[in-house]
Design a protein around this nucleic acid. Sequence first.
DNA 1: GTTCTAGAAC
DNA 2: GTTCTAGAAC
Length: 213
Amino acid sequence: MGKLSSFNNLNVFWKFISGNGVWMAESPTQMFWSDGLIDAINNTGKQLFVSDLAVVIKDKYPKALHHFLVLPWKDIDSVYELSSDDDGLLQEMYELGSKAASTSGLPAGQFEYGYHMKPSMRRLHLHVISKDYHSPCLSHWYHWNAFNTDFFIKHEYVVKKLHEKGCIDRPHTQHVMTLLETPLQCNQCTYVPKNFKDLKLHLKQHVEYGQHS
DNA sequence: GTTCTAGAAC
DNA sequence: GTTCTAGAAC
């Protein structure tokens, strides 16, 4: 097997996304690290926009220059619990995300909206992230693939799938692993990075010199 | 989710 | 010397 197949740091990734083990709390109201988002949305100081159905916060570890999360107040764990009845909620979450994105000053088309195929944190959360992916918090190979492969389930896909089938199918473990092992590829040009550090430097060039670096 | 560390691999 | 791997974290 090749280099990518032996990228076993994914086993560590798998360990924490599978929800096993005992973890340290980050605040008195948070029993597990995986409840961090639920803790955050109930902190009024962190709420950027609020509606009856959902709330927007900044991602604690932004993976781009602008990275927001939109979460429902309702205790929905993930996209796999959604039904066609939730179309209104999804649209409202998208609208709230758009409001947050507009505060960046960037064109609306510079943002991507989607859900992770295998989220680590509890409570459904829509990622609203700028396409630069220029951030010190984007520090692992699988961070990149979590946003730049089918691991990132686009908002439009979720809406379409719920309309057509009424639910989102849970993926097989092997499929998720394969997506996270995908070779690196720039999202803004045809460049194929030699390694993760090379990708980081390349993304920085796009931010500093634009699309034609 | 993240940070930290040691040791392997390149 | 740099990058990647692997595991712990009460």
